[in-house]
Structure formats: structure tokens, C-alpha cells
């Protein structure tokens, strides 16, 4: 998966992707975003076992000169957190689609309908960059 915005994933408007696999989804950040902010140096990961709501901050990150707080594209229980990223946040720069940030057990699958597919996300991105 080395495309900019791989097909088969869903995207929100805030640099995050969702990979659906039954009731549990993986959530991570997109490559165009990782590329634009350069190397991540710090990351604050979500807490395993916590309930998260769509739109709430799930990850806070600082790159060489950027800092921000990203919104969760889904609601549900955080069943797993990719703790390896804490020691090496730059893994997200190397392959943001391999290194998911959290796995979430969905509260409501219908919520996924509000996300974009790769084509829509790409159109959205080009219009932002333009």
C-alpha cells in the first residue's frame, strides 16, 4: 500500500483513515498529511479501554515544527493501541498505512457512511491544496 490514499480505506476530513474489518476498525493518519508535516517527534496515544466519540481528539502529535490534535473518525471502544509508536513516532512517516494508531470496536457501523472513499478524499485534498 504505497499509494497516497489507498483504495479500500475510508477517510475523514482531518487526515485520518479507517480500515474496516468487521466490527473492529483500524485508525491511522494519511500519507499526504505525514509528508506535509515532516518527521514526528512526539506522540500522545489514546488510552486502551476508553470510549471515544467521533470528532474527539484521539491522537496529539508534534513534528519538527508542527503540533496538532486529530479527531477520531469513528465512535466506539478503543480495544488496542499501537504502543510502538510512542518510542518511535517517525514510523508514521515511514509507512502511515502499515502503522495504525488504534483499533476501535465500533459503536455504530452506520457512522462509516459519513466518511469518504479514496476518490472523494483525493478530490477533497486537491481542493484544499489548490
Amino acid at each position: 500500500m504505497d499509494e497516497e490514499l489507498p483504495k479500500g480505506l475510508l477517510y475523514n476530513d482531518n487526515h485520518s483513515w479507517v480500515k474496516v474489518n468487521g466490527d473492529v476498525v483500524e485508525v491511522g493518519i494519511t500519507k499526504p498529511f505525514a509528508n506535509s508535516v515532516k518527521e514526528f517527534v512526539y506522540i500522545e496515544l489514546p488510552e486502551q479501554g476508553k470510549e471515544i466519540k467521533k470528532g474527539e481528539t484521539y491522537v496529539s502529535m508534534e513534528s519538527v515544527k508542527w503540533s496538532g490534535h486529530l479527531e477520531s473518525p469513528v465512535s466506539g471502544e478503543i480495544v488496542e493501541v499501537n504502543n510502538a509508536l510512542f518510542d518511535e513516532p517517525s514510523l508514521l512517516n515511514q509507512d502511515p498505512y502499515k502503522h495504525w494508531i488504534m483499533r476501535v470496536k465500533l459503536l455504530d457501523k452506520d457512522e462509516l457512511n459519513g466518511l469518504m472513499d479514496a476518490d472523494q478524499a483525493l478530490a477533497n485534498l486537491s481542493c484544499k491544496l489548490g
Binding site: D13, N14, G55, T57, W66, S67, G68, H69, L70, E71
Partner: peptide
Amino acid sequence: NAQTRKQG
């Protein structure tokens, strides 16, 4: 100067 971004 310092920046952060959240919710657009």
C-alpha cells in the same frame, strides 16, 4: 511563535 491545529 507556536501553532497547533484542531478540527480544521
